[in-house]
Computed example of a mutant assay.
Amino acid sequence: MFSDFRSNKRTFSLPSEQISGERWHPVTIRKTIRYPHILKLSDIENFEAIAQTGSIRAAAKLRGLTSPALTQCVARLENELHVALVVRTTRGAVLTEYGIAFLRRAQLITSEVRRASEEIGQMLSSQGGSVSIGTSATPATMLLPDVLAQFRRDRPGVQVQLSEGLFHAHLSRLREGKMDIAVGPVPAVGLDSDVLVEPLFENDLIIACGLQNPLRVATSLADLQEAEWIGTGPFEQGPGAAIADAFREHGLPVPRMMVRSESMAAIYTLLMRTDLICALPRATIQGEPLCRALCAIPVVEILPHYTISLFRLADSPLLPAARHLATLLHRHAHYVTQAMSKKQKQKLLNSADSELG
């Protein structure tokens, strides 16, 4: 096989062969195969603007172009890809099935270009740039205060963008390249091979309530059958799903989730001011000031525990600032594990002393 780069053609030579006793002479077949030209980054960015705004006119204004110029941009992309990407309707510009698929790749392309520029900048100066991290309640309480304090000492010029929530809320931003890393419990669903999972430490659940809640003296899950609960995140993921499984294992009805919230501040306020209860990581109510406003209901059943992990894209290397932040998270997670181990040993010793006494 030979390639003619000037005419964008490939030449295939078929060897001579004996067929039915006759000698065939070598035959050269020339077939023109059209390859798409290299897509322009500006066209890809313009297409992203259309997807973001849902309108040719709004996207043109956002990009500082005229509507006809943006229409020509879409036409170039569609001619190169041989599919329709955008359809104009009375509601605006709507992406086709191909457009949606192309958008996912387009976002990665523009994100990687931005990250490449940021990486060079951070290599030239460790005191600039930014890092974006998503976190659930447990690492926000147990890891981030010390980690960020150390990070600010190491890289005082780097801006940290912090988003709170469970992993499902961060996954799309990770895949779009808008978030560097996320930290939280490993979800039951939603993980693919494009996301790397790096375990940090184990955490256990408690059932939390306000200090004035009548259910604070309950001693079993059966005592909580009529309770009204606050759910955190989707019911099929997170602490709520683990508690539901615990109820099922003991032959009890699944708890009634009366409120579902992504805001930990709202959850803490509801627990303090109402009779609602919620499954939370133990660490979230052990520190100030929540330890003086919330308590763990002392049920006898052993509640589930789960792994807090660091998540990042598998095929996108972390920028220097994000890489340093990830290193600090692993280091301080080790310290947390050691501290938890010491507390557990002390608890066992205290229990043994009380039995002997």
Rank of each mutant, 00 (worst) to 15 (best):
V259Y: 05
Y98D: 06
T96S: 05
A93S: 15
T138Q: 11
A84Q: 13
S316G: 00
R175H: 05
A265E: 12
N79H: 08
K343G: 04
A149M: 09
D180R: 04
L318P: 07
R30P: 00
G251R: 03
N46H: 04
S172L: 03
R104V: 10
W229M: 03
Q225D: 09
P199F: 00
Q346S: 08
T28A: 06
E198M: 10
D154S: 07
Q52N: 07
I243G: 03
T284V: 14
T53P: 00
K342P: 02
L196T: 14
S13E: 14
L148G: 09
I56H: 04
A149C: 03
T269F: 01
R260Q: 08
C278I: 00
M258N: 11
L310A: 14
I277E: 07
E236K: 03
S136Q: 02
A326N: 06
I297L: 04
P289F: 10
L166F: 04
D245C: 06
P281K: 02
S132R: 12
A326Y: 14
T284C: 11
K178F: 02
L166S: 10
S354A: 08
L276Q: 02
P281A: 07
H82Q: 15
P185I: 03
A265I: 15
G231F: 01
N8I: 02
R30W: 00
N46L: 04
G64S: 09
L325W: 09
A339S: 04
E80C: 01
G233C: 04
T337N: 11
L62P: 00
P214M: 01
L108E: 15
D223V: 07
R91C: 01
L271P: 12
V336W: 14
I207H: 02
E262V: 08
A59R: 07
E262K: 06
V217K: 06
R323T: 13
G129M: 13
